[in-house]
């Protein structure tokens, strides 16, 4: 029966699709902008693994940091790659903690400025 074959094909495709790691960072090509209610610019281009290999970043906490709000400093040996950025960074700035967009912008651009590598201009990440 044709419909049965169809459903088997769909099921196999789905299993293959999920098992190849559709949700892993290997396939991450852009910054997820879903937390933002309305966006003015296209998603920032960011190929997670390609970027980190090129930039020789091995410590996850370089970006996925943990901040001690009481002490007012980053905790050196902890990282937060199991969390999403927006779980800590609200859309709006709260006290010293930058809002989500500002956190992204400053994290990327400050490093690019310090390393003298990587894009700084708005449209080099937010490509139309």
């Amino acid at each position: 029966m044709i419909p049965k074959i169809y459903s088997i094909v769909i099921a196999i495709t789905l299993v293959l699709y999920l098992s190849t790691g559709v949700l892993s960072q290997e396939d991450m090509l852009v910054i997820d902008n879903r937390p933002f209610a309305d966006t003015t610019r296209p998603n920032a281009i960011f190929q997670h693994d390609v970027h980190n290999e090129k930039a020789e970043i091995e410590d996850c906490a370089t970006c996925h940091h943990v901040y001690d709000e009481d002490k007012g400093e980053f905790i050196p040996d902890q990282s937060s790659e199991d969390q999403r950025c927006y779980e800590c960074h609200d859309l709006k700035e709260t006290g010293k903690k930058p809002g989500l967009m500002k956190a992204f912008h400053l994290k990327c651009k400050r490093c690019h400025q310090e390393q003298k590598k990587g894009p700084l201009m708005c449209g080099d990440c937010h490509r139309k």
Binding site: M121, C122, G123, D124, R127, K128
Partner: peptide, 12 residues
């Protein structure tokens, strides 16, 4: 620059 027409870096 906003529309990223032609040479973006140059125009920015």
């Amino acid at each position: 620059a906003y529309h990223q027409w032609f040479a973006y870096g140059f125009f920015l």
